[in-house]
Design a protein around this nucleic acid. Structure first.
Length: 611
DNA sequence: AGCACGCCGACT
DNA sequence: GTCGGCGTGCTC
């Protein structure tokens, strides 16, 4: 990289879609040695005096650009923050999502913290770590570790149990993923573990702390301060193998020699990135797996329809525990004729009441309820409102039904991480269930009918996920009561064959041409613009568009559905439309007046397409 | 975005 | 003649 490669190709850090490509600059001699791929640079844009920031992506011998090249203004620092692998990943994901690589790089590369960066550069590379020994996760035999070592793509069914890591209780899944990560590290490769939320992250960190020294593990999540986040990011760049644990954006961690990406509970909506272009952590992991050849483990107590589709295609191999886990789950009607007065007080079936009462002799009992607020909305729509109003109200009622019992409420406003093993009634909204020391002695899934009444394409999948995750918090041999629910979701829970529901759901979606059987795009703008964009897709096969619907004042949204095979073509055309919209005429002449150009928004595979 | 270029109406 | 208005187009 010298006089023979006098051109620097630069990605300018801009939100403008028309600038999301490489620009060529001449490298002045004084910068020749430091103008290397990955560094932050400053460049003139359009006219001298106007300086933009960007990343130097590559050096080249020649440029296709016409005219004389402008010169690189400055190399901001020698830290090569845009790793080639991350650059390639963000480019490919952006193309797939008809979005800007720049938007993804903003997730992947944290804001520069000058002090942190200077300290890191001054310190030089850290001492190499001693590699740990391989650890086989319990419950799967050695086959799972072997599959990860050979870079397999695995859909993993979690074991619904709690285990101890040191002196804390964690989900078996966390111990499993930790063991796979440690075994990857033992082979001299890095692992990235992605979890939906901090409660899951803490379990994973506890599992890892029991296996390896803290220096092997790198936290990367949005809750860190900016300097901490940047420190963690720079540490990943060093190249030494490590284990990264974090939420959805950790999938972009710039580790080298990647051996494993593992995603826990991929059906959790927290894995969906809300920021444009809205790339789901699962999709990012799938593409990164393809590019790096690392192993990919998508694990859960349930199987998402997305993963089911990839299992059916043979893209994923499904791994089950050695022994079929069979938690005891009893479905019960909402009302039964047990005639138990105390049960009536709490408006729960008397059989469930008796199970809870007996279990409370021995330890904590979990009562899962829906999120507050749903019932009020349902009542407004004139639907029958089932069983409970919210966690607080349920707590009052159950408190009366179980006098002299300790009652603990856990929900969004009152988060409770852990409860001890003494008897207590733990009333939690789904997803906020605390972990009980040794596991719950019984679990009551009280609000099934209300959870299932939500209008959503994914409602059955989501409910089974919430119920299964609660069942996994029970002690060995404990009974779970599922109140008031029958049909396929209940059957999948009782038989602990969640993949059967995923298969049935996917079959339905194929018939109806709903995601993930097809991909989707939403196109939002004024009506003529939406129609124009849809028209530009007319000649493509296996693409259909639903009639545009008004979403707000003057704006319309159309949903486009397309087969995976034409995804690249659809994304390319939608991207071209977005760029044209951003650069074209700012107003159009119209009967003596002009109207402002309507902004065009395009989003692929977003949850808004079909709720 | 932000800035330069270009093509029509009032001006020293 | 030409100053400058905003509509238009481009950014190595």
């Amino acid at each position: 990289m010298s006089a023979s490669e006098p051109v620097a190709r630069v990605l300018i850090d801009s939100a403008l879609p028309q600038l999301d490509r490489l620009f060529d600059y001449a490298v002045p001699e004084r910068l020749d040695a430091v103008a290397v791929p990955g560094v932050r640079v400053k460049v003139p844009l359009r006219s001298a005096g106007r300086i933009a920031e960007g990343y130097l992506v590559e050096r080249a011998a020649t440029s296709e650009a016409k005219g004389e090249l402008a010169r690189l203004e400055e190399v901001v620092s020698e830290a090569r923050v845009l790793a080639p692998e991350v650059r390639a990943l963000t480019r490919r994901l952006a193309d797939r999502a008809a979005g800007s690589a720049n938007d993804l790089i903003r997730l992947a590369v944290p804001r520069r913290q000058v002090r942190v960066e200077k300290a890191w550069l001054a310190a030089g590379p850290a001492a190499p770590i001693a590699l740990p020994q391989t650890v086989h996760p319990s419950g799967y035999g050695t086959g799972l570790t072997d599959a990860v070592a050979r870079g397999a793509r695995i859909a993993l069914h979690g074991v619904p149990r709690l285990v101890q890591a040191g002196d804390v209780w964690i989900g078996h899944w966390a111990a499993t993923l930790a063991a796979l990560a440690v075994s990857t590290l033992a082979n001299g490769r890095s692992a990235i573990l992605v979890v939906p939320d901090y409660r899951d992250q803490e379990q994973l960190e506890a599992a890892l702390a029991a296996l390896v020294p803290a220096g092997h593990v790198q936290r990367m999540d949005a809750r860190q301060s900016n300097p901490d986040r940047y420190r963690a990011f720079l540490a990943c760049l060093e190249g030494a193998p490590r284990i990264v644990v974090g939420n959805r954006s950790a999938v972009y961690a710039p580790v080298q020699h990647l051996g494993l990406i593992a995603l826990w509970d991929d059906g959790d909506p927290l894995h969906a990135e809300p920021l444009s272009p809205g790339v789901h952590a699962r999709d990012a992991a799938l593409v990164r797996q393809e590019q790096s050849g690392c192993a990919l483990v998508v694990a859960g107590h349930t199987r998402s329809t997305e993963v089911q589709r990839l299992v059916e295609l043979g893209w994923f191999e499904a791994h089950e525990p050695e022994r079929h886990a069979a938690p005891r789950v009893i479905p019960t009607a909402e009302q039964d004729d047990g005639g138990e007065r105390m049960a009536a007080v709490a408006r729960i079936p008397s059989s469930a009441w008796r199970i809870a009462r007996d279990a409370l002799e021995h330890g904590p009992v979990l009562v899962q309820v829906a999120r507050p607020g749903n019932s009020a909305a349902a009542a407004r729509r004139g639907e029958p409102v089932a069983v409970t109003v919210d966690a607080g109200r349920t707590a009052e009622d159950l408190g009366r039904a179980f006098p002299r019992t300790r009652v603990i409420v856990a929900d969004g406003e009152r988060p409770v991480q852990r409860v001890d093993s003494r008897p207590a009634l733990v009333i939690a909204t789904r997803g906020a269930e605390p972990i009980a020391e040794g596991g719950y002695r019984a679990v009551l899934l009280l609000d099934g009918p209300r959870m299932l009444s939500r209008e959503s394409l994914r409602v059955a999948e989501d409910c089974l996920r919430w119920w299964s995750n609660a069942v996994a918090l029970a002690a060995e041999g404990a009974t779970t009561v599922l109140v008031g629910v029958g049909g396929a979701p209940a059957r999948a829970l009782v038989t602990w064959r969640q993949e059967l529901l995923a298969a049935a759901e996917l079959e339905d979606r194929r018939r109806l041409r709903f995601p993930p059987a097809v991909r989707t795009a939403t196109v939002t703008s004024d009506l003529p613009t939406v129609r124009q964009v849809l028209h530009e897709l007319d000649d493509l096969q296996h693409v259909d568009a639903l009639e545009p619907e008004p979403v707000e004042e003057g704006r319309y949204r159309a949903v486009v559905r397309f087969d995976y095979g034409v995804g690249a073509a659809v994304a390319e055309r939608l991207r071209a439309a977005v760029i044209r919209n951003a650069t074209g005429r700012r107003s159009v002449a119209r009967e003596g007046g002009s109207r402002p150009r309507a902004r065009l928004q395009v989003r692929l595979d977003g949850p808004e397409a079909f709720g």
